[in-house]
Measured scan of single mutants.
Amino acid sequence: NRRVIAMPSVRKYAREKGVDIRLVQGTGKNGRVLKEDIDAWLAG
């Protein structure tokens, strides 16, 4: 149960899109989840 590193704005964006942020692979520094990662996850 790893802790997800993401800015609050990215967490909010994921919530609005209905994405469980824990399932998204972060590509930022130290595995940080970026807004682009959410978009990529939604695109498949």
Rank of each mutant, 00 (worst) to 15 (best):
D37Q: 01
I5T: 07
V19E: 00
G28N: 02
G18Y: 09
I21M: 06
G28H: 03
D20M: 07
R32S: 10
R11W: 14
W41M: 06
A14I: 01
V19N: 00
G28F: 02
R2V: 14
D39R: 06
K12T: 06
R15D: 05
L34Y: 10
K12R: 14
V4S: 04
A43R: 15
R22I: 08
V33C: 05
P8T: 08
P8Y: 07
K35Q: 09
N30E: 10
L23C: 07
I5K: 07
A6N: 03
Q25G: 10
D39L: 08
A40L: 13
A6D: 02
G18A: 09
V10D: 04
D39M: 08
R2A: 07
K12G: 04
L34W: 05
K12P: 01
R15I: 11
K29V: 10
I5F: 05
M7N: 15
S9L: 10
V19C: 08
T27H: 08
V4P: 12
D20H: 06
N30G: 13
R11Y: 07
L42S: 07
A6E: 02
L23W: 11
N30S: 12
Q25I: 14
L34F: 10
M7H: 15
T27E: 03
S9W: 13
N30Y: 14
D37N: 08
E16I: 12
E36H: 14
R22S: 10
D37K: 00
E16V: 12
A40W: 10
V4D: 04
G44Y: 15
G28C: 04
L34E: 10
S9M: 11
D37S: 02
G18S: 10
A43K: 13
N30Q: 11
E36V: 14
V10R: 01
G44A: 14
R22A: 09
K17G: 04
I38F: 00
A40N: 13
R11V: 06
V10I: 07
G44V: 13
G44E: 14
W41A: 06
V4H: 05
Q25R: 14
G28P: 01
R3Y: 03
S9A: 15
A14Y: 01
E16H: 11
K12N: 08
D37F: 00
L34P: 00
Y13K: 02
N1T: 12
G28Q: 03
E36A: 15
A43Y: 12
N1M: 04
L42G: 05
K29C: 08
E36F: 12
G44M: 15
R32M: 12
V33D: 00
Y13V: 03
N30C: 10
V10K: 01
R22V: 08
Y13P: 00
G44H: 14
A14L: 01
I21L: 09
E16R: 15
G44W: 14
P8H: 11
K17F: 08
V24Q: 01
V24P: 04
L42T: 07
V24I: 12
R2L: 14
G18C: 11
G26K: 02
D20Q: 07
D39K: 07
V19R: 00
G44L: 14
V10P: 01
V10E: 06
R3H: 15
E36G: 15
G26E: 02
I5L: 07
R11A: 04
R22F: 11
R2D: 15
D39P: 01
L34H: 09
L23A: 11
D20R: 06
R22T: 11
R22G: 08
N30D: 13
N1Q: 12
L23S: 10
V24G: 01
R32Q: 09
R11C: 08
R32D: 05
N30K: 14
N1C: 09
K17C: 06
D20N: 11
T27M: 06
E36D: 12
A43S: 12
Y13T: 02
R11H: 08
V10L: 04
V33F: 01
A40I: 11
I21N: 00
L23K: 13
T27Y: 04
K29L: 12
K17E: 06
E16K: 14
D39C: 06
N1E: 14
Y13Q: 03
D39A: 05
N1L: 04
R3F: 05
G26L: 02
L34A: 05
K12M: 08
G31P: 02
K17D: 01
K35S: 07
R32F: 07
K17P: 00
R22M: 11
A6Y: 03
Q25S: 13
R2F: 05
R3E: 15
R2P: 11
D20T: 05
R3N: 14
Y13A: 03
A14N: 00
R2H: 15
G31M: 08
A40M: 13
G26I: 02
D37P: 00
K12D: 05
K35R: 13
S9D: 09
L23M: 13
R22W: 12
W41F: 13
A40T: 13
K17A: 09
V33L: 05
R15W: 12
M7I: 09
I5N: 08
V33K: 03
L23G: 09
V4G: 05
K29Y: 12
Q25W: 15
D37Y: 00
S9Q: 12
P8L: 11
V33G: 00
W41Y: 14
R15P: 00
M7L: 14
S9N: 11
E36M: 15
I21V: 07
V24T: 04
I5W: 04
L34S: 09
R15K: 13
M7Q: 14
L23D: 09
I38Q: 00
I21P: 03
V33E: 00
A6P: 03
G18H: 11
V24R: 01
L34K: 11
R2S: 10
M7V: 10
I38N: 00
D37E: 01
I5Y: 05
K17R: 12
Q25V: 14
G28Y: 02
I5R: 08
V19D: 00
A14P: 01
V19S: 01
R15T: 10
D39Y: 04
G44P: 09
Q25E: 13
K12Q: 09
I21D: 01
A43D: 12
G44D: 15
R2C: 12
T27I: 03
L23V: 13
R2G: 15
G31L: 07
G28D: 04
D39E: 09
K29W: 10
T27W: 04
